[in-house]
Simulated scan of single mutants.
Amino acid sequence: MPLHSVQHISPTAVLGLWHLTETPADLWAGLPHPEAYQPLLPATADATRQAQWLAGRRLIHRLFEEAATPPPAQATVRNDATGRPWLAGAAPGTVVSLSHSGAWVAAVLAQGGRAGVDVEMIRDKARRLAGKFLAPAEWADAQAATHADPDAGSTHYTLLWSAKESLYKLAAQRGIIFRQQLLLHSFSPRESGEIPATLVLSGAETRHSICYTQPAPGYVLTYCHEPAG
């Protein structure tokens, strides 16, 4: 079943997971008003990228069925100049965040506030690049955690990268330096839980909590939603 799960993560936000098994043609067939999406599909996308892109839009429209306010008939998922998704034709304050990796697509749909979601295939790349996105204290914590459980090395570093991606999407600003402005604090790694974090913007620090889990073997998922007010 392509729609894997829908979860209410706050009174005003829903998280959805899509297990991608369809071809682009299959996904086009179930997409509302495909004529609006035809010119938006990235021209350079191969079949895999097309399927991920289309599944993300299918998932967002499915999440509207769980939201308190139904969408207008012609609501469409678009991307702004920075690549961030937004909902044209939806009610003011509607927030969306999207992510895809391999066979999984994740999305958060919220009425107000801020949201971020990220799904990642577990690879060793995050460990190799740790010095570029982890602050010294974070790197020390990661080394200690993976020393205690060497088999979890790639999973742990991928989780840290994903958590910073979700926080970056929540911040919704360009030019953020991951090592300096997206800071993760110590936590005890489990199959699922929360990572305390600090966001540093314009000299001000705010505290946040990034939820994490493993939706399937070989993947990690992180997300956060903060209601308005």
Rank of each mutant, 00 (worst) to 15 (best):
L3I: 08
L3Q: 07
H8I: 07
G16K: 05
L17T: 01
W18G: 07
H19D: 15
H19F: 05
T21E: 13
E22F: 07
E22A: 13
E22G: 03
E22I: 10
P24F: 11
W28H: 04
L31H: 11
H33M: 08
E35Q: 14
A36P: 01
Y37E: 15
P39M: 06
L40P: 00
P42G: 14
P42T: 13
A43G: 11
T44M: 07
A45F: 14
D46N: 15
D46I: 10
D46K: 14
A47F: 07
T48I: 09
T48E: 02
W53P: 09
W53M: 04
A55K: 09
A55G: 12
A55C: 08
A55F: 03
G56Y: 02
G56K: 03
R58W: 13
L59Q: 05
F64I: 02
E66C: 12
E66P: 05
A67P: 00
A68N: 09
T69C: 05
P72Y: 11
A73G: 02
Q74D: 15
A75F: 10
T76S: 13
A81F: 01
A81I: 01
T82Q: 13
T82I: 06
R84D: 10
R84K: 15
P85K: 07
L87G: 10
A88P: 03
A88T: 07
G89I: 03
A91N: 06
P92V: 14
P92G: 12
V95C: 06
V95A: 06
S97L: 13
L98G: 07
H100D: 08
S101P: 15
G102T: 11
W104Q: 01
W104T: 00
V105L: 00
V105T: 09
A106F: 00
L109N: 06
L109V: 00
Q111M: 05
Q111L: 06
G113I: 06
G113D: 02
G116A: 14
M121W: 12
R123V: 14
D124F: 12
A126R: 05
K132E: 13
L134H: 12
W139F: 03
D141I: 02
D141K: 02
Q143R: 11
Q143N: 10
Q143C: 12
T146N: 00
H147Q: 15
D149R: 11
P150Q: 08
A152I: 05
L160I: 07
L160H: 09
A163R: 00
A163G: 11
A163D: 06
E165W: 07
E165D: 08
S166A: 14
S166I: 09
Y168M: 05
A171H: 10
A172H: 09
R174D: 15
G175P: 04
I176K: 12
I177R: 15
R179C: 11
L183P: 03
L183R: 12
L184I: 08
S186T: 10
F187C: 06
R190Q: 11
E191F: 00
S192R: 10
E194Y: 05
T198N: 12
V200N: 15
L201W: 00
A204E: 06
A204H: 12
T206W: 08
R207N: 03
T213F: 01
Q214V: 03
P215A: 04
P215V: 05
P215I: 00
G218F: 01
L221D: 01
T222D: 01
H225E: 05
E226T: 13
G229D: 08
